[in-house]
C-alpha cells in the first residue's frame, strides 16, 4: 500500500499514471490536432513531475529541466505543430493500420512486459521514485507502437517526441536526471530535429501531394 509514501511522491506516481494514460489516449486518437493537444498535456505532466522531484530531492538543475520541458514541449512545439497542421491542411480522421482496440490490447501486453523488465532494475535503484521506472519504459514502448501503427508523417514525429518524453521521465525517475549539459543538448537536438522534419513535410507533400508515408514505398528501387 502507498500509505508509507509521502504526498509529493504520491503526486509523482499519479503524474506517472497520467503519462501512461495520455500515451494510451494517443494510441486511440484519430485526429492529428487531438494528438498534438495530448502531446502538450503529456509535456505538462512531465514538467510538473520533474519540478516535484526537484523540490523533494532539492536538486536545482532539475528545475531548469522542468522549465525547459515546459517551454519546449508544452508551448513551442505544440504551437509549431498546430501551425503546421493548419498550413498543410491535414487534420482529418486517420485510420490506423491496426484497429484501435487491438492496438490497445498490444499496449497492455507491453505495459506488463515493461513493468516486469523494469522490476529488477528498480529494485536495485535506491531512489524514492523507482516504481515509476516501469511506467517510463512502458511510455517509450507505447510511443514506439504508435509510430508503427500510423502511416501519416506528423503522428510519427509526435510518436518520436513522446518516446523522448518517456526516456526523459525514466531519467528523472531513476537517476534524478542527467547532467544539465546533456539535457540541454538533447533538447536542442529535438528542437532542431522537429524543424528539419517540418521542412521535410513540405517537401514530401510537394512530391507526393500527400503526407501519407505509404507513398514513400515508391522510392525503393525495383
Amino acid at each position: 500500500m502507498t500509505l508509507s509514501l509521502t504526498y509529493h511522491l504520491q503526486v509523482v506516481n499519479f503524474l506517472a499514471a497520467m503519462l501512461l494514460l495520455i500515451a494510451f489516449a494517443m494510441l486511440s486518437q484519430r485526429r492529428i490536432v487531438g494528438l498534438v493537444t495530448l502531446f502538450a498535456w503529456q509535456g505538462a505532466a512531465l514538467s510538473l513531475s520533474t519540478a516535484i522531484v526537484a523540490w523533494s530531492t532539492d536538486q536545482h538543475h532539475l528545475y531548469y529541466s522542468a522549465a525547459l520541458t515546459l517551454i519546449l514541449k508544452v508551448i513551442a512545439m505544440p504551437w509549431y505543430f498546430y501551425r503546421l497542421v493548419k498550413k498543410l491542411d491535414v487534420d482529418r480522421d486517420v485510420e490506423p493500420m491496426i484497429n484501435i482496440p487491438t492496438t490497445m490490447l498490444i499496449g497492455i501486453a507491453l505495459v506488463i512486459f515493461a513493468f516486469n523488465l523494469a522490476l529488477p532494475i528498480s529494485e536495485m535503484s535506491g531512489t524514492v521514485t523507482r516504481s515509476t521506472l516501469g511506467i517510463a519504459m512502458a511510455s517509450v514502448l507505447l510511443a514506439f507502437l504508435m509510430m508503427i501503427t500510423r502511416s501519416k508523417a506528423i503522428p510519427q514525429v509526435i510518436g518520436f517526441l513522446a518516446m523522448e518524453n518517456g526516456l526523459f521521465f525514466a531519467a528523472t525517475s531513476a537517476t534524478y536526471g542527467m547532467p544539465l549539459v546533456v539535457e540541454l543538448g538533447v533538447a536542442l537536438d529535438v528542437l532542431v530535429g522537429v524543424f528539419v522534419l517540418g521542412i521535410f513535410f513540405f517537401q514530401i507533400r510537394e512530391t507526393f501531394d500527400s503526407l501519407d508515408l505509404k507513398h514513400m514505398e515508391k522510392l525503393k528501387e525495383k
Binding site: N13, A16, F24, V111, F115, S131
Partner: peptide, 24 residues
C-alpha cells in the same frame, strides 16, 4: 461505439494493472 467501449474496457483493465504497478 464498440471501439469507444472497448477503449473503456481496456482502460479499466489498465487501472487494475496500474494498481499493481504503483500501489502495491
Amino acid at each position: 461505439a464498440p471501439e469507444f467501449l472497448g477503449t473503456a474496457f481496456l482502460l479499466g483493465v489498465l487501472g487494475m494493472l496500474i494498481h499493481f504497478l504503483l500501489e502495491v
